[in-house]
Write a protein that binds this DNA or RNA. Structure first.
Lengths: 114, 114
DNA sequence: TTCATATATAAGCATTGACTTATATAAACG
DNA sequence: CGTTTATATAAGTCAATGCTTATATATGAA
């Protein structure tokens, strides 16, 4: 991992965004598996507009990137963001969210494209 | 550094607290040099009540600890906090704040006890 | 005990933030 | 085309937040 130095201002902005349980969970979920909005709505059990608004904040900050696949908009961590390494390290201190993805797959609600 | 796993909730609470430029700077300042309130007021150029209120939030969360020395109340990072390792890693991604302490010393405003 | 200094706390206010409901947009498909 | 599905955005509401000013507390010194 390369150690990019961020300013205090940049760092606090990133931490403020991740200082919300919903957004932190989203980032943990898409860390290594991109997800579409409806999957996040399902996993987090929140309204679609609420999830979309959280994703917008993350996207406006450049923390996540989006890619359309037909009906669905998939979100992934933006590995080119200056804070990507910081974010990865933060996630290392948290339980892996991958079980939630597995549970989604097992419930047949995972969106698979192509 | 030991890798303590925190819950998503605990992590987001810590990040929310550090997601404020003033508090993040405070934590960076006292990382390896304990500081009293008036020094933080001087360095951060903010009102005393404002600094005290930020310190209270950090203390209520257990992130910092306080120690009275005569008139002065000194604050330091609480190394026993479950998120201490996480916080240390976050600070590694930021510019070191020690120059501000040095400038304070050079201006003769550093508080020295004993 | 009285005063000065350092800090904490309380109350008030303006701003931000996260949700809600309602509506707009955009793609796929009949 | 019109309809359905997925997502985005807008507007409104209410709670949380960070500051201010004013005041309380605590320590040390005269």
């Amino acid at each position: 991992m390369n150690q990019t130095l961020l300013s205090v201002e940049e760092t606090s902005k990133v931490l403020k965004l991740l200082g919300d349980q919903t957004r932190l969970t989203i980032v943990g979920l898409i860390k290594d598996t991109e997800c579409c909005v409806c999957e996040l709505v399902e996993i987090l059990d929140m309204s679609q507009p609420s999830i979309s608004q959280h994703l917008r904040k993350l996207r406006d900050a450049g923390i996540v990137k989006e890619k359309r696949k037909g009906h669905w908009m998939f979100y992934a961590l933006n590995e080119d963001h200056a804070a990507f390494d910081l974010i990865s390290r933060i996630l290392e201190h948290m339980p892996d969210q991958k079980e939630k993805i597995i549970a989604l797959e097992q419930s047949g609600k995972r969106i698979v494209c192509e």
